[in-house]
């Protein structure tokens, strides 16, 4: 067996590595190291909003995505393929389109948004809750995708054994299927959270850019870039570090 990599492939791979790494190196070069902590401190409001929004969105994405993954993995009903496509669509949808769609349906003049307003006096657009909805919308498919794959890998015979030991469907799900899928689910949670944290297009379209209410870290970076580019570089570095950490955690639970 020869282990040589064809030169052409090697050359293109090098270009690929450069394309991915050079911008990050460029960012490092521009970060004002002495002012880094100060910049982060100044953005504490956006940081807080980001933390709250991304964590709530992740919780919502897990609450909805895990059952969806189970239904897709185990359901035998017709139209499952269509359902899967619909649920996974936000992954490929341009975020701004997601935002417009959310606005059209959940906005005050939208069919669902109107109802929420009339019945409960709830308005989502341009509120923190709206930012959470936008982030959840884009994060759910990641959790669903990973959960479905995980549930497909569960040894069904173990669930059968659990049934003969008196465990009903819910107990089989909780005590047998979930522990077996835990590593995959952890990866799904991290991916979903990272996606929610980085969400920009849908958030700005649906929830706007209101400091202290809907301005998350990515939005703050974008607007700082015009006013105080140094601060934007600092905050970007912060998100790079968080992303690297997320990747490390996700990878570890995946590889196991």
């Amino acid at each position: 067996m020869t282990r040589q990599i064809p030169t052409r492939l090697a050359a293109l791979a090098v270009v690929g590595v450069l394309l991915v790494s050079l911008p990050l190196l460029g960012l490092l070069a521009r970060v004002p190291w002495t002012g880094f902590l100060g910049d982060v401190d100044d953005a504490s409001q956006a940081l807080q909003i980001s933390a709250v929004v991304s964590v709530l969105a992740t919780l919502a994405a897990v609450t909805l995505g895990v059952p969806l993954g189970w239904v897709l993995a185990r359901g035998t009903f017709r139209g499952r393929t269509v359902l899967r496509a619909a649920v996974l669509l936000p992954i490929v949808l341009p975020p701004v389109v997601s935002g417009v769609a959310l606005l059209a349906s959940l906005g005050r003049s939208g069919p669902v948004g109107g109802l929420l307003d009339d019945l409960f006096g709830i308005t989502l657009p341009f509120t923190t809750a709206g930012a959470v909805v936008a982030a959840t919308f884009v994060a759910v498919p990641f959790v669903t995708l990973v959960a479905e794959a995980g549930f497909r890998g569960v040894n069904r015979e173990l669930e059968d054994i659990a049934a003969t030991l008196g465990a009903g469907p819910w107990r089989r799900f909780r005590r047998v299927a979930i522990p077996q899928t835990a590593p995959a689910l952890a990866a799904g949670v991290v991916l979903g959270w990272a996606r929610a944290l980085g969400e920009f297009g849908a958030t700005i379209t649906f929830a706007g850019n209101l400091p202290g209410r809907t301005q998350t870290l990515p939005l703050a970076i974008f607007f700082e870039l015009e006013q105080e580019p140094e601060a934007a570089f600092s905050l970007s570095l912060l998100l790079v570090l968080v992303s690297v950490a997320a990747l490390a955690v996700a990878r570890r639970s995946w590889v196991r």
């Binding site: 173990l158 059968d160 054994i161 659990a162 049934a163 003969t164 030991l165 522990p179 077996q180």
Partner: peptide, 20 residues
């Protein structure tokens, strides 16, 4: 009657213990 409501003890071929 679903399996969980039958008074059965089933020992499968390979034991199939819960690995966790």
């Amino acid at each position: 009657l679903p399996a969980e409501h039958r008074s059965v003890g089933y020992v499968p071929q390979s034991g199939l213990l819960f690995p966790h």
